[in-house]
């Protein structure tokens, strides 16, 4: 069975589950964060975070520099552990299992949770090798299967038509916007359920930014997306829910329509209207 077919079966199974659960019509919670606190040595960076991230939605995290939004997103795939002296309390349940528990293998988590970074970071290899890097690590060697993954991933990242005739060229030769979409394709190649995006368009020009935004709206049909962005209009354009963080706390978490038209907290109002931050 191909990796793509496996994924399809998984989705079908998921759909069946949804059918049986549809009587209650409860959206599925992918990440359930409860009472999360995080310290970088003495610095209390995240304070009593409680958040639920729902499947097939785009959740945007906004807030001024140093508010903890990047720390939080890096906690969701445990990248934050790379920083020395990090300590946490509380839980983050990913599909019901606490990812902060020692028994959780970080490798397993990261096959399900992909990440796209602020600056496009392709490997100094061909476009083809960039996309097949992850699947090869997971033991896929068959050329026809890898070809299929490359095409599906690049199509999924809305860049197939632009690069299909030069798959063996170095990814460094692409524009910044194209490189970022190749990085998204590389992320899709491992077939994650969740994609974390840390300011994915801040290094891109407006046209490339719009392409990535359109892509995000398309990707949410299959994936759950959590995006950190400094661009509030971007959060307003693409997300279903928005989290506003300040000084390591969640000040407000609500439907994006609500947060940008009628925020409940004065601090949210002041931040999104540019009165501080």
């Amino acid at each position: 069975m191909s990796i793509t077919t496996q994924k399809k079966v998984q989705i079908d199974v998921k759909n069946n589950d949804t059918t049986t659960e549809s009587k209650t019509e409860q959206p599925r919670v992918v990440y359930d964060t409860k009472d999360l606190n995080l310290w970088y040595s003495e610095t209390h960076a995240l304070k009593d975070i409680n958040l639920e991230v729902t499947e097939n939605e785009v959740t945007a995290i906004i807030g001024p520099s140093g508010c903890g939004k990047s720390t939080y997103i890096k906690t969701l795939n445990r990248m934050v552990e790379l920083v020395p002296g990090v300590g946490t309390t509380g839980t983050i349940a990913y599909k019901g299992k606490n990812i902060l528990d020692n028994s959780m293998k970080v490798e397993d988590l990261r096959t399900q949770v992909g990440m796209v970074f602020q600056k496009p970071n392709p490997f100094p290899k061909s476009i083809y090798e960039n996309v097949t890097y992850g699947p090869k690590i997971h033991g896929i060697k068959k050329k026809s299967l890898l070809d299929e993954i490359v095409e599906n991933s690049l199509r999924g990242a809305a860049i197939w038509d632009e690069v299909k005739d030069r798959l063996n060229q170095n990814a460094y030769g692409l524009s910044g916007g194209q490189q970022q979409r190749v990085c998204i394709a590389r992320c899709l190649a491992i077939e994650p359920d969740v994609i974390l995006m840390d300011e994915p368009t801040s290094a891109l020009d407006p046209i490339s930014t719009l392409k990535v935004e359109e892509l995000i709206k398309e990707l949410k049909k299959k994936y759950t997306i959590i995006i950190v962005t400094h661009n509030m209009q971007q959060a307003a354009r693409i997300s279903d829910k928005t989290v506003f963080m300040l000084n390591g706390e969640v000040v407000e978490f609500s439907e994006t329509d609500q947060l940008f038209s009628n925020p409940k907290d004065k601090r949210t109002e002041d931040y999104i209207t540019g009165r501080f931050g």
């Binding site: 307003a236 940008f260 038209s261 009628n262 109002e269 209207t273």
Partner: peptide, 8 residues
């Protein structure tokens, strides 16, 4: 590009 009270 106003939001919230400014937009209203």
């Amino acid at each position: 590009q106003p939001v919230a009270t400014d937009l209203r």
